[in-house]
Simulated assay, not measured.
Amino acid sequence: MSLIAAATLLVFATEGTLVVTAPDTEYDIGYEELVAGHDREALKAIEECEKLSDHDPARQINHAVALARVGEYDEARARFAAAARNADRYELETATGDWVDSRVLARRGLAMIDRGEFSQYVALANR
């Protein structure tokens, strides 16, 4: 996979919610839906993506975010954990323009679940 296909953007919303996006790719791994706050639609897009492996770290992170946002914390934790230990490892772009290892981003997602930051978002109801 190219760096462009693996590039993700990490955005922390005011509620402390993690939004993982994959701009500038030909793969639909829920970017538009996550940004728009349509998490169930993001899940559908991610789960129906046939062009990118289920084992891709960017896809795993997007999937985890969408799952966490709809309150599926155990499944989200499993996806974040898979990305954190994934043999494939990419430098992914953050919202601040920093390039961060995919494993680091996955561990951040796990920490957000541990701190209950996604549960606040679910109470409000969110490429």
Score class of each variant (00 low, 15 high):
G71D: 05
D74F: 00
R103C: 10
V65I: 09
G71F: 02
D74E: 11
D98V: 12
T96I: 11
A64R: 00
E93K: 13
A82M: 08
V100C: 09
N86F: 03
R77L: 04
D74S: 09
R69A: 04
A95R: 14
V100K: 13
H63E: 03
F80Q: 02
V100F: 08
V104I: 15
A76M: 04
S102F: 08
Y90S: 07
P57M: 06
V100A: 11
E75H: 12
I61F: 01
D101Q: 14
A95V: 14
A68R: 01
R77M: 07
F80R: 01
V104R: 15
Y73E: 13
R89V: 09
I61E: 02
R59P: 03
A95W: 13
V70R: 04
E93S: 11
S102W: 09
A58C: 07
G71Q: 02
E91T: 10
Y73M: 11
S102I: 12
D98T: 13
G97T: 12
A83K: 04
A81T: 14
Y90M: 08
R79Q: 14
S102Q: 13
T94D: 08
V100S: 12
A64E: 00
F80T: 01
G71W: 00
A76E: 03
H63Q: 10
D101M: 10
G97Y: 10
E91L: 14
R79C: 11
V104Y: 12
A95C: 11
R77W: 07
E72G: 03
A87L: 12
R103H: 15
S102K: 08
A68C: 08
N86T: 07
F80D: 02
G97S: 09
F80W: 04
D101P: 02
R89K: 10
L67G: 03
P57Y: 02
R89W: 04
T96K: 15
A81L: 10
Y73C: 05
N86C: 12
A58G: 05
A87Y: 06
R69P: 01
Q60T: 04
W99D: 05
V100Q: 14
Q60V: 02
R77T: 10
A64Q: 02
A83F: 02
Y90W: 13
V104S: 12
H63F: 04
D74H: 06
A106I: 08
N86I: 06
V65D: 06
A82L: 09
E75S: 14
Q60N: 07
T94V: 06
Y90H: 13
L67P: 03
A83E: 03
Q60Y: 01
R77Q: 13
